[in-house]
Write a protein that binds this DNA or RNA. Structure first.
Lengths: 225, 225
DNA sequence: GCCACATTTAAACCACAGGTGAACTATGGA
DNA sequence: TCCATAGTTCACCTGTGGTTTAAATGTGGC
């Protein structure tokens, strides 16, 4: 096969919007399941499966089966490098006011993401409610357990019961900083929604903080939106 | 527009085979005309024009009009970087490294280009045989006229007779410096070929300096290849 | 003034690539 | 054992996006 042709097949592979979104999701280096990738990319499971198959066949992704899940990740670091380079081409003009505080955040699969999530996670760490023990795991301190209990989340119980990664740092590529993912991150978003501190929007990963949510967030974490 | 969306539009832009081929052509840093890009990409002029328009609109390419040609080049070096990274993902064995050998130069449409051309133009300016009067025009000094006469080029006559831009500075993308284009630049290449100081290669814009050419160039301009 | 060439624009066409729905495999939990 | 969940495969259909055909714009050379 011609080198030209190989290049074009490669770019066509990366260029398809759904595939591009899935690849973007993997940029933080985590291995994600087919379902998670499908959800992020706004695609049906079948569609995602087809796309992932092509990406694996092209040796852009590698797949690992664990139980009934299949975890996809980049086949080699160069793939991530190339995608980073591509992502850096996106005009960055509209990353306004990380500090000015937006009521808007977004959800990342099932937990809070974006600069609000980063700010929250930073505050949790700063107050030593959360500590980053390894590169891939947050640990909830005793004070943290109490804090989560106050919020209405039984962190301890959750850690014992859940098979899912408990408190995983999730790198937000647009923010270049970690925020809280995993089961705890998901529980937190669920709880915040239940408290009506944030509301989901229809057909979008965007979530918006209510006025009450903003007040409470400032009160319990000192985070001003 | 969402960051995700911007990324996908970007990748979709790069992912289209014809566009990808054109971008690949530009990877060596040269600025190419729409026609040349169309030819290389195996596309009709109209199709190429449409694609190029999109790439320019997305600020991946920049375009510069020169006469009835339009030269396309990367809008910023990061674009080339990203494409390099993508190209490096192609599994096949790499082709031999581009000739950094100084005997090699290349032609730009009809005149000498590349770092040799830049060196020559610099030398001409340094010895005040050529002066850059406006941003778009070189002027041949009296000493310059004599120098060109010695070379076998009647610059004065040419300037009177030719309607074509006489001595235009031509920006070489890969060198980031101007070199001598226009009628005078074309005449110079023609003359150098006639003198057998440089030889054209078949099916390529590459030209190579002969041993004699290298000696002479040093003698009359002090340019060492 | 003319013609030739390079390139762009507009409109009609159509192929291919991705989405969908249904059916199938496999794993885990009761 | 049964059922729910995760994921894949297949066949069909639809719509986007690129190509084509045609005509217009603009520049250079005579």
């Amino acid at each position: 096969m011609d080198v030209d042709t190989e290049f074009t097949t490669l770019t066509a592979l990366i260029g398809e919007p759904t595939r591009a979104r899935m690849l973007l999701q993997l940029l933080d280096g985590r291995a994600l399941t087919a379902g998670e990738l499908a959800c992020h990319a706004n695609a049906s499971p079948q569609a995602a499966s087809g796309h992932l198959g092509k990406l694996v066949a092209a040796e852009l992704l590698a797949v690992e089966s664990q139980g009934r899940h299949r975890y996809y990740r980049f086949a080699r670091p160069e793939v991530a490098d190339a995608l980073e380079a591509l992502a850096s081409l996106v005009p960055t003009k509209q990353q306004p006011a990380p500090t000015s505080g937006s009521r808007y955040a977004r959800s990342c699969y099932d937990h809070l993401a974006g600069h609000v999530a980063v700010a929250i996670t930073q505050a949790l760490c700063q107050r030593e409610l959360l500590t980053l023990t390894t590169a891939k795991e947050f640990t909830v301190t005793n004070a943290g357990t109490a804090w989560f209990t106050d919020l209405g989340i039984d962190a301890k119980m959750m850690q014992q019961r859940s098979r899912r990664a408990f408190a995983r740092p999730c790198l937000d590529w647009s923010e270049r900083r970690h925020h809280l993912g995993g089961a705890l991150g998901a529980a937190m978003l669920t709880r915040l929604v239940a408290l009506d501190w944030v509301r989901r929007t229809a057909n979008s990963r965007l979530v918006v903080f209510t006025g009450e949510g903003q007040r409470q967030l400032y009160q319990i974490l000192g985070v001003r939106l």
